[in-house]
Design a protein around this nucleic acid. Structure first.
Lengths: 237, 237
DNA sequence: CGCTCAATTGAGAGTTTTCAATTCTCGTGG
DNA sequence: CCACGAGAATTGAAAACTCTCAATTGAGCG
């Protein structure tokens, strides 16, 4: 148990700029000259801080450099619905293009460094750089694809499979960011996981306990260690 | 009961070109000269016909002129998951931009007329026409927004509320297309509704019966008549 | 060290699914 | 035009799953 702490605490979960989702915008060959005006680098936000309030005009997109964000809407009955968790390299706010208004609140889950991308400048660059055009379309389209997978998860999976899918996808996302370990430090609480998955805190907790009994993983607070990746993938399907 | 049939059968549910989701592409002021090359008009597909198979390369987008489509993926266990229903004026296939491969199967729910929009040509037009750029970004972004609403529905609503949301959103979509009546002709089966909503056929059927007992609506086969719109909206929340 | 909030665990209630039987619809052929 | 049959839809009863409410334990912070 002690070793998990050690391993995980050492993970900072930032991302080298080459792995950033907008790396195509950052690489010198493309943007060397306009970079400074378009991309404001590494603003700092502290845990819980609201970066954007829903219903405010779209001015900028946000790219996570280190830390993590969540986006959520609040329903008329004042319930929160989390729509996504964002890790280093992820771009946030694209869904606001259609209305020019942010539909979601954007909030820091931990102390977070964020790069900001000016909306108008990005639109201009779409017109002048084919690479940028393709990248933006691709990011938008990938977002749709992700929501389709989430819908599939909601629609066809039981609670244990949903949770397994969530943990496995986090594992994959960290892997894509160069963290090859089977350890994951969750940036979000059980309540936030439950909300995102359409379950209750208790169901998430029970399923975590069940997966520990089956020795699929070890969960200790925010730290999760995957003991049996194959079994986890089996649960995912 | 008999009058419902009469009313509903008279609805053809096609859309005038001005209400099409790509009307911004069609209006003469923008595209008069290039229209013919970009937009191939009104190909006919018969009920059940597969328009695009998943995993095939993205060549065209599809715009429904009359009739209706569904998109779906098939899971490894050979289950179908419906990701969307498309009505006249809707554009289908945008989610394939990121991979250049169609993730979804696209299938006609009834005899359907479809306009095709060439992918490469559309990309070219994005570069030359700001209006087209904005429209495409808006459509993609709106798609994301729709999936977020679907996720909210899955995540926080019980079966009766989900079904009410589905019927009400169909009502709204037909209304936006100029059909102001409280009658709806469903293009899809109960099984398809259930699949889309993450429920079973039986649950959908039971909830329809319940809503009839409460005199919220009358359901007769594919025909639904909304008797009490306020009550339906209450259920939606 | 104690306080507060988060997480876990248990028991019972409510919702949805599953399995099974019946009824209804609609297209086809007599 | 009606009867038939196959698939779709409805209904019922029991099982499975998740939620709610409540109590307990655990973790993080001043």
């Amino acid at each position: 148990m002690h070793s998990i702490y050690k391993t995980l605490r050492s993970n900072s979960y930032s991302v080298p700029c080459e792995l950033c989702s907008i790396s195509g915008l950052c690489v010198p060959r493309l943007l060397n000259n306009t970079l400074s005006s378009v991309l404001e680098r590494k603003k700092s936000y502290s845990k819980e801080e609201i970066i954007v309030k829903a219903k405010t005009p779209l001015k900028k997109f946000f790219i996570v450099h280190s830390g993590a964000l969540k986006t959520f809407v609040t329903t008329p009955e004042n319930n929160e619905q989390i729509n996504g968790f964002y890790l280093p390299g992820d771009i946030v706010g694209l869904d606001a293009i259609s209305t020019k208004i942010h539909n979601n609140n954007i909030q820091a889950l931990s102390n977070t460094l964020i790069c900001e991308l000016d909306y108008d400048e990005l639109m201009n660059m779409i017109d002048t750089h084919k690479d940028v055009r393709d990248l933006v379309l691709k990011l938008l389209s990938a977002d749709i694809y992700n929501y389709q997978k989430l819908v599939l998860c909601y629609s066809q999976k039981k609670s244990d499979e949903r949770l397994a899918t969530f943990i496995y996808s986090l594992y994959l996302r960290y892997q894509q960011r160069g963290h090859t370990s089977l350890s994951i430090k969750l940036a979000m609480s059980r309540a936030e996981i439950a909300n995102y998955l359409g379950l209750t805190i208790e169901t998430v907790s029970r399923n975590l306990s069940k997966m520990q009994e089956q020795n699929i993983l070890t969960a200790k607070g925010k730290y999760i260690y995957i003991n049996n990746l194959e079994a986890l993938i089996d649960l995912v399907n």
